[in-house]
Amino acid sequence: MNPYPFIHPKGPSLSTTYDAHDTYLLEGVLPYVDFIEITPDSIFRRRNGISEIQPDILKDLLSVSRDVRFLVHGVGLSIGSWEGFDASYLDNLDLLLPHIDCAWHSEHLGYVKVGGDNLNTMLAVPRTDAMLELLIPRIKTIQSKYGMPFLLEHIVHLLPDYQPEYSDAGFLNLLTAETGCGLILDLYNLECDAHNYGFDIESFLAELDLGAVREIHIAGGAEYLGYKLDIHSGKVADSTLNWTRQALAHTPNAEAVTYEILPEAVRLHGAQFVIDEVARISSYFNFTKHGHQNTSGNPAAADQNAAVLCAG
């Protein structure tokens, strides 16, 4: 029996990042995607010390809300910080979620803060019992707060592991078994680890409970001082597409394959670059757009929001 209640009958759909106001990009990718990935940390701004969604981006999201569902993918939660996760990230989630039809939300299995100090990079958590004790109640708190699936994404390991008590897959398997949370499988992250220190992707996939994978991430990055970085700055390499094809054959619950690209890279390459890449990935996997009926339960609310924003 499959323990996961989210088997997708139609197979996976394509998804891509939208984190900066660019209607040309949004309209260009729309024919190919069923999901749009948004990052609260990117689409919010601060005014007078208060966080708010950038109005032009919210307006863009609402304008396509009948056509796609949204995947909220955070970077600022810092679920692995010893002192606790950053509650202000959840405050922003509380502001965002009423506006959109969010299929699920997710975060990285890592930390970006130490003692309140911002690292400006993300580090992987130690794979230890002590860490599991910290993480499991935090995941459960988040799950019970929001009535939607919560997914965790494994991240690259640039620094040496601190006395690991579990393998990478074994640690993820324990987390998903204990909490029922889903996983994002990021094939590009795995390729970075394979390049940087010989990580064995095949063994990882063989050990991982692939039934827990609900979303797959792909991206293209860059090398620096011989290290492959998960910088999401370019085209997806053939090797990443190959790994993704193999993974899809064993991830029956994967509903979305998300092509991730940083807004900074979109500015650098231009929107057409991203649209072309989304089209190429779509045709590589033979994805078809499934289409959605808006299942947010309250499309009228979205219309109202749009009207308010347009009036403003």
């Binding site: 620094l159 040496p160 620096y224 290290y227 900074e264």
Partner: peptide, 29 residues
Amino acid sequence: ADSSSYERELAQSPSLAVVRDIARWWRAY
């Protein structure tokens, strides 16, 4: 002793400089 041996390993790791550069680059950018 374990913690300090990890700290030594970390300090000698060439990837530590890469992580520091990433943070520096991101802050400056």
